Computed example of a mutant assay.
Amino acid sequence: MSLITTDGLTMRQGGKTVLSNVDFSISKGEIVTILGPNGSGKSTLLRLLIGALRPSAGKVVRQKGLKIGYVPQKLHIDPTLPLAVSRFLQLPGRVAPAAAKAALQRVGATGFEDQQLASLSGGQFQRVLLARALLSQPDILVLDEATQGLDQPGSAAFYSLIEELRQELGCAVLMVSHELHVVMAASDRVLCLNGHVCCQGAPEHVASAPEYRALFGTGTHGALALYRHEHDHDHDHDGHHHHDGCDHDHAHTHDHSHQEGSV
């Protein structure tokens, strides 16, 4: 059963087409990661999926009564504003103190209730944002670059926590991330986006550290070529093959052990 499905989703902003004809779905319990270069429409797609934006064309269908827990990329809070964690967790609706305490405890932020948001480290703040997302008892957790600014051990610990929560709650997880070393291990499915869906499918573990390091110096080609695309398999729920012209040459990373048609 799909929690969210899109059909021909298109978004134009400022006279420019940001997303074109995106067909996507995510099912209960699934972890899906969206990859793509800067400006490829990743955050726009997330905002369309959760209903924060209205599409220019196409449609988004959400399961009736779907509860979404959203962890934004950044949340700008005036550092001079006195706002304790306990108060922040009450926005926008009241939450029982016991529920707030339990959520903080679950994300490894025990005893943070009286701390000021402005005094938290990046990792602590992300955990508080995650606790807030959990308070809605979500069917799907949506994370937009949620570990940006964290060091590698910090982000690995955060993704490990997300995996635990997925298993405990049975919720789906939809992530935008650049951290391929974690993403490849953690995701059930990877969607490659560059204004349109280039391809999607099961991820492969990033093979070696040199390749991972290389991606930082090779721009989007490195980032998008690090997982294997098996173009001879159906990757989506509709039976469509995704041969639709990703702008990047993946030929040197394809695994040709499966020839076309020899499934």
Results as ranks from 00 to 15, higher is better:
Leu53Phe: 14
Asp255Trp: 05
Asp23Ala: 10
Ser257Met: 05
Leu53Pro: 08
Glu113His: 06
Val263Asp: 04
Gly29Leu: 08
Ala98Tyr: 09
Leu224Trp: 02
Ile140Gly: 04
Thr218Pro: 13
Leu143Trp: 01
His231Ser: 14
Thr10Val: 10
Gln126Cys: 01
Leu75Ala: 09
Glu260Trp: 11
Leu161Ile: 05
Leu226Gly: 07
Leu130Glu: 01
Ser2Val: 02
Arg94Trp: 10
Thr17Gln: 15
Leu83Ala: 04
Glu204Asn: 08
Ser40Gln: 07
Glu163Asn: 11
Ser160Ala: 15
Ala57Gly: 03
Asp238Tyr: 13
Gly108His: 01
Lys64Phe: 07
Thr44His: 10
Asp7Arg: 15
Gly14Asn: 14
His252Thr: 06
Glu163Cys: 09
Leu35Met: 14
Val60Cys: 01
Ala186Tyr: 02
Arg87Gly: 10
Gly261Tyr: 09
Ser160His: 15
Val197Asp: 01
Ala146Arg: 00
Thr10Gln: 09
Leu120Trp: 08
Arg62Ile: 04
Arg54Phe: 06
His237Ala: 14
Val206Gln: 04
Arg12Glu: 15
Leu143Ala: 05
Glu168His: 12
Leu9His: 00
Lys74Ser: 08
Ser177Asp: 14
Met1Ala: 14
Arg94Gly: 08
Val182Glu: 14
Arg132Gly: 03
Ala96Leu: 12
Gln105Tyr: 13
Ala156Ser: 13
Gly41Pro: 07
Asp7Lys: 15
Asn194Asp: 14
Ala84His: 13
Arg166Ile: 03
Val128Gln: 04
His258Pro: 03
Ala146Val: 00
Leu180Asp: 01
Leu83Val: 11
Ser119Thr: 11
Glu211Leu: 06
Arg62Lys: 12
His233Asn: 14
Ala186Trp: 02
Arg132Cys: 02
Gly51Arg: 11
Met1His: 11
Ser155Cys: 02
Ala202Ile: 11
Pro37Ser: 08
Gly29Trp: 06
Ala100Tyr: 06
Leu89Trp: 01
Asp236Ser: 13
